[in-house]
């Protein structure tokens, strides 16, 4: 901060402190997230998609082993995993990936748009 001839008054400092504390409590400085480089984003989307499928297959495989229903649950969870992968990629692309569940992310998005 630049040196000033007359230091700020105590009231002014107090007001500034209170404003800073308010900002801290809100903790919502996240809107201006750094735009990732194109390659990084592409890589990220690919990973998100593949991981969704992989987790689905793993869950299905595990349930099949446990319940002895091979291969049906794996087929079902492969499809569900594919859907989750698409949703993951969509959420990552739209920046809706910061909450548990897409509904909460969308509600927060509309709320923050209303605020601005």
């Amino acid at each position: 901060m630049a040196e000033r001839d007359n230091p700020p008054s105590l009231e002014e400092l107090d007001a500034r402190l209170r404003a800073a504390r308010e900002r801290e409590r809100a903790g919502r400085g996240r809107e201006e997230r750094v735009a990732s480089a194109g390659l990084g984003l592409a890589m990220r989307l690919a990973v998100e998609f593949v991981v969704g499928i992989a987790v689905g297959v793993a869950i299905g495989w595990g349930l099949d082993r446990w319940l002895g229903t091979r291969p049906w649950l794996m087929v079902l969870f492969l499809l569900l995993g594919g859907a989750a992968g698409v949703m993951n990629a969509y959420r990552a692309a739209r920046g809706l990936d910061d909450t548990v569940g897409i509904g909460a992310a969308q509600r927060r998005r509309t709320r923050s748009e209303k605020d601005n």
Binding site: A54, F77, A84, G101, I102
Partner: peptide, 8 residues
Amino acid sequence: IELISYLS
């Protein structure tokens, strides 16, 4: 789907 998404 949400559960798989969370686990991923």
